[in-house]
Amino acid sequence: MKPIFRGGLPRLSFFLLIIIALGLLISDYRGDSVRPVRSALSVVLTPIQWLVDIPTSIADDISTVLLERAVLIKDNNQLRSSSIVLERKVQQMMVLRAENIRLRELLNASARVDDTVLLTELIGVNPDPFQHQVILNKGSEDGVFIGQPVLDAGGVMGQVVEVSLYTNRTMLVTDGRHALPVEVVRNGMRAIALGNGSHGELDITHIPDNADIRKGDILVTSALGERFPYGYPLAKVVSVLRDPSRKFMIVKAKPLARLNNSRYVLMVGSKPPVLVGVQEPINSVPEEEGQP
């Protein structure tokens, strides 16, 4: 390298690069124009995300191998009995559903459609403490779209914010930038659940002082945001503080989904034209079939 370039070249390229990066930053912040760049780059980087996941999956495999027979038998029995309980509920559900459809027809209300579901595995967690995001191993190849709701066995986990070919990034409901319209199961009162950036806590904001909300109330999605289907459980109210000096109550809720340790999650397809014919049969589980 000629010494003559030492002074000038790095400085020039430094300013150029900073300006390009600022341009990227502004266009990413203001709109969707750099989304193709991002998803192309994340396809290239997908192997790194797989690498990150290897230690966890190996640990999982080892603990499966080391499990004792007795434990397995016990687990199996437990699962069998819980499956019987669930199947009984499903039987009732069939009757209830038929009844519901008839009543809705009587009322001329539109029927509720069953949602298609895609089983997904979690392969990474965003290490940035400010962002509650996880990386899941289904991408646009599998029909995942931005805004798609993500659930686990307990309840709503979050929604997809970024899709690449084979993976997607899901923002959890506890992220400081996430808000979700909900309603109280007991009386149908509507509210909005905001993530506040701390793990395992949601703020229910703008509840008037005289509203009927109690500790232990279950909040479900109200579908008013037009993203989440109606009626999936989100959180349980853990504290209600009435402060006469404030206009609104301070209500805290705890998410029902196990946000920190669910490995298998479900993505609900509420955008049928995209999902039709894309799912593989192994991955798609009709929601209310009780088959194990």
Partner: peptide, 26 residues
Amino acid sequence: FGVGSAWLVGLMLDVLKGSVLGINAI
């Protein structure tokens, strides 16, 4: 290895971390 390589590495890191594109690059 100069500022250009660092910029590229930063861009990769942005995509990997899911932060706004360009923060780590800068």
